[in-house]
Amino acid sequence: MPALELRGVHARYAEREVLTGIDLAVEEGEVVALLGPSGSGKTTLLRIVAGLEQPSAGSVLLDGREVAGVPVHERGVGLMFQDYALFPHRDVAGNVGFGLRMAGRPAGEIRERVAEVLALVGLPGFEGRSVARLSGGEQQRVALARALAPRPRILMLDEPMGSLDRALRERLPDELAAIFRRLGLTVLYVTHDQDEALRVADRIVLLAGGRIEADGSPEALWSAPPTVFAAAFLGFRTIAHGELGDGAIRGPWGPIPLPAAAAPAASSGPVPFLLRPDAVRLDAAGPIAGTVSARRFRGDHVLLVVAVAGAPDLEVELRGGPLPAPGDPVRLAIDPAGVVLLRD
């Protein structure tokens, strides 16, 4: 039985459909990232699960039980708000222990649990601090501790890295992921940052325009994004259209043979496809002729931009080997394994 299940959930604000028929099941112990651009309905979905918003249609099930009539405070879910919404008039312990106090736990137990979760998020001994005087990163940890303390059946996080500076954004997703795994938590993690989603989640659900655009493991999504939107949102740049036929796709760079398994029947019109960065390589005997137009150093590799006559530029990632300079003529070959057929 899934820990959380959404069936045909719709939401609408003043005539505008924010969510249009979401079906989603999150299994016990699964960490799911809800990824999507702003306005895609991610936050609304979290608020519906928490009971802060009502769906206009569809149902929400927690541990297999429909929760339509259950008010927010009896749902027992954890929600970490964007910008945290810490109680400014309470100290750290007052914030973290709030949920336990609402549950009527005895003071001694609350004290122990608060100390325990504060230690877990790396803030041992912070009980008496004022939340206003904490740094952004510390506030985030207190908010996480507050959400974790009552042991919610599902933990939801709304853009937890939203207002943190770059250095923290680099480090914290891995720490969060480690905490989720250690506690075996069921997590719904909202973010607009694909890199963050890839690092934190077991599974990524890509949301666009109120619909689920893609759903799968980070590896699967990365190696084969299903749609043009998904590919573009994940940061892939070389996307083009071509005609399918004879086990090959005919795009702007000429025909590229496809592996038998990937080659479907001939298409009736142009089909979008993606060339992953690892698909294009320098090959003196390759079929495509071009001129290097720019060379960009990227730390662990060099990115070569090659202008191809009558076709969009191609990008080549070089790791070692001779480095052509801008203006040099080169020949390129495309590896069929790096070609991904997309849907619009």
């Binding site: 405070h73 929600l79 810490l86 709030f98």
Partner: peptide, 20 residues
Amino acid sequence: RLREAAAVLGASPGRAWREV
């Protein structure tokens, strides 16, 4: 959102008003 945060943590509407 403070009231919402209190509600998610288990405070009834009246309790949330008293606490927040």
